[in-house]
Every structure is written in C-alpha cells, then in structure tokens.
Amino acid sequence: HAATELTPEQAAALKPYDRIVITGRFNAIGDAVSAVSRRADEEGAASFYVVDTSEFGNSGNWRVVADVYKA
C-alpha cells in the first residue's frame, strides 16, 4: 500500500519520525508527490507531508522535502 499524503492540519497533529529529500525532474507537482509517496513507502512510512518544493536553477530539476510519519 502506498503512503498517503496528509493535509496541513493532519501533519500538524502528528510528529514526523524522519524527513526525506528527493531531487529529480518532475513535469508537475503531482509527479513529485508520487515520487515522495514511493520513497516514503519504501521507508515503511504510513503517510507523508510535503514541507517544501524548490526548483534548482532553470534546469527543470526539483528538490522536494517531506516529513514522513509511521501511523
């Protein structure tokens, strides 16, 4: 099962156990969220919340930071 994305309210009520950072070329924010979901799932997380997204220069590469939560 894939890790689910939390709302800001849900994330605020929970304590993350880790923070992950992924970088890559994403065509849309949805693609980045899917990549975070896969990584969170690999780490055994039940859910995640994207904290920050930023573009690296003009290369089209993105850096996505997310907190991950157990259950």
Rank of each mutant, 00 (worst) to 15 (best):
Val36Leu: 08
Val21Leu: 04
Asn27Arg: 11
His1Pro: 08
Lys70Phe: 12
Tyr49Ala: 05
Tyr69Asn: 01
Gly24Trp: 03
Asp18Met: 15
Val65Asn: 01
Gly30Tyr: 09
Ala35Gln: 06
Phe56Gly: 07
Arg39Met: 11
Ala66Gln: 00
Phe48Asn: 00
Leu6Met: 05
Asp31Val: 05
Ile29Val: 11
Ala46Trp: 12
Ser34Gln: 14
Ser54Asn: 10
Arg25Pro: 09
Val64Ile: 14
Gly30Pro: 06
Trp62Arg: 03
Ala71Lys: 12
Tyr17Gly: 02
Lys70Asn: 10
Ile22Ala: 00
Glu9Asn: 08
Leu6Asp: 01
Ala12Arg: 12
Val33Tyr: 10
Arg19Asn: 00
Lys15Gln: 12
Ala71Thr: 12
Ser47Cys: 14
Glu5Arg: 14
Ala46Ser: 12
Val33Leu: 14
Pro8Lys: 15
Ser37Trp: 04
Gly60Asn: 06
Asn27Glu: 12
Asp31Glu: 13
Lys70Met: 12
Glu5Met: 13
Asp41Leu: 15
Thr23Cys: 14
His1Thr: 08
Ala71Ile: 11
Glu42Cys: 12
Glu9Gly: 09
Arg19Met: 04
Ala32Thr: 04
Ile29Cys: 10
Arg63Tyr: 11
Glu9Ala: 12
Glu5Ile: 07
Arg38Leu: 09
Gly60Cys: 07
Ala11Asp: 02
Ala46Lys: 09
Thr53Cys: 15
Arg63Val: 13
Asp18Phe: 10
Trp62Glu: 03
Arg25Asp: 05
Lys15Tyr: 08
Ala11His: 04
Arg25Met: 11
Asp31His: 05
Glu9Met: 11
Ala45Asn: 03
Arg19Pro: 00
Ser34Pro: 04
Tyr69Pro: 01
Trp62Gly: 03
Val36Thr: 04
Arg39Ser: 04
Ser59Phe: 09
Asp18Tyr: 09
Arg39Thr: 06
Ala32Lys: 03
Ala32Glu: 01
Val51Cys: 05
Gly24Lys: 01
Ala2Val: 11
Ala66Trp: 03
Val50Lys: 00
Val51Gly: 01
Pro8Ala: 14
Ile20Leu: 08
Ile22Gln: 00
Asp31Lys: 04
Val33Ile: 15
Lys70Tyr: 12
Thr7Ser: 10
Val51Ser: 02
Thr53Phe: 15
Arg38Phe: 06
Phe26Ala: 02
Phe56Lys: 05
His1Glu: 06
Val33Lys: 12
His1Ala: 09
Gly44Ser: 05
Gly30Lys: 13
Phe56Gln: 11
His1Leu: 07
Ile22Leu: 08
Asn61Trp: 15
